[in-house]
């Protein structure tokens, strides 16, 4: 042989030295990769969460308006005053309604994307779901205000096809309706559902994609109708995705303070209450206590979901 290749190749500088270092100490690379995000999560995120929790156990002096830095449950007791409880219940009902609404609309779309869309149509699906996320949230909300307004396209179209009666009947329902769609709780609901829908579709689609076709065939093979297959196979297997999506829609609705200001009655939601309490009112402890409510509700929700076996298929 003219040029024999060596059994061991020479080191080619820094990159090879680092490779060797990481090869000798496999955990080192993991540590290098994980330290910055863990610092961020630990210090900035958990730290501020802890500070928030701490604030919620302080109270405010009613005369001076100064925060008293001693532990008390007084602020939490304030949450149970009628007007505050009202805000919590209103937010909870809206979040639940938005979550259910999103789930009902998202499921057929996610199912189509996971089971039938191939090639070009898959790209169209992703584009269609993601496209609204590219534009500003505020622009979308204001656009909806115009769409839903009394002089807006929906009222106009309803008049045009003679469905004003139905629209007015819906708007006359107490608790849901109002002067126009843009000033009714129904309007708030519609905008919430629109804005958070992608966050429900994507995890659902990912979950449905993981259900093998052979499992649906096995179910049909053993005599199940489509409805039975849906109830006993598809839904339980897709449940982790549904839960993941509902965490998004539920918590995003609970924390939002912009949509209820722009569309709907001016009734307050938790997010708006927090915004106003820490801003104009300067009541940081009560704002913090309000902010803890969604966290507690989410924890309860996840505990129930786990008990019901929603994560068994994970």
């Amino acid at each position: 042989m003219t040029s024999p290749t060596p059994a061991i190749l020479p080191e080619r500088g820094l990159a090879d030295r680092l490779t060797a270092l990481f090869w000798r100490h496999p955990r080192l690379l993991l540590a290098v990769l994980l330290t910055p995000p863990l610092l961020w999560l630990g210090v900035v995120y958990l730290g501020s969460l802890f500070a928030l929790l701490l604030q919620s156990f302080y109270s405010i002096d009613e005369f001076s308006g100064v925060v008293k830095e001693e532990f008390t449950l007084k602020t939490y007791a304030e949450l149970f005053r009628a007007q505050n409880l009202d805000i919590i219940i209103r937010t909870l009902v809206m979040s639940a309604a938005v979550t259910i609404g999103c789930a009902l609309i998202a499921f057929p779309i996610a199912y189509y994307a996971a089971r039938f869309a191939r090639g070009k149509w898959k790209a169209v699906f992703y584009l269609g779901v993601m496209l609204p996320l590219w534009s500003s949230y505020l622009v979308k909300v204001y656009a909806w205000k115009l769409i839903l307004a009394k002089e807006g396209i929906i009222t106009w179209a309803a008049e045009g096809v003679g469905l004003s009666m139905i629209l007015n009947a819906i708007l006359a329902i107490p608790g849901i309706g109002g002067n126009s769609l843009s000033t009714s709780p129904l309007g708030t609901f519609i905008v919430f559902v629109y804005v958070w829908l992608p966050y429900m579709i994507l995890p659902m689609q990912a979950a449905l994609e993981r259900v093998p076709t052979s499992m649906l065939e096995a179910s049909a093979d053993l005599g199940a109708s489509r409805a039975q297959t849906f109830r006993t196979v598809i839904l339980p297997l897709a449940m982790p995705g549904v839960i993941a999506g509902s965490i998004f829609t539920f918590s995003l609705t609970m924390g939002d303070y912009i949509i209820p200001q722009i569309v709907g009655t001016s009734a307050r939601f938790i997010g708006l209450a927090v915004y106003q309490l820490q801003g104009t009112a300067g009541n940081i402890p009560l704002a913090a206590a309000f902010a803890v409510v969604p966290i507690v509700i989410m924890l309860i929700y996840l505990t129930i979901a786990k008990r019901k076996g929603a994560f068994d298929a994970l």
Binding site: P212, S214, M215, E217, A218, S219, P236, L237, G309
Partner: peptide, 9 residues
């Protein structure tokens, strides 16, 4: 089925 298709849940 070839992959058995047992229901994992």
């Amino acid at each position: 089925f070839q992959d058995y298709a047992l229901f994992p849940h």
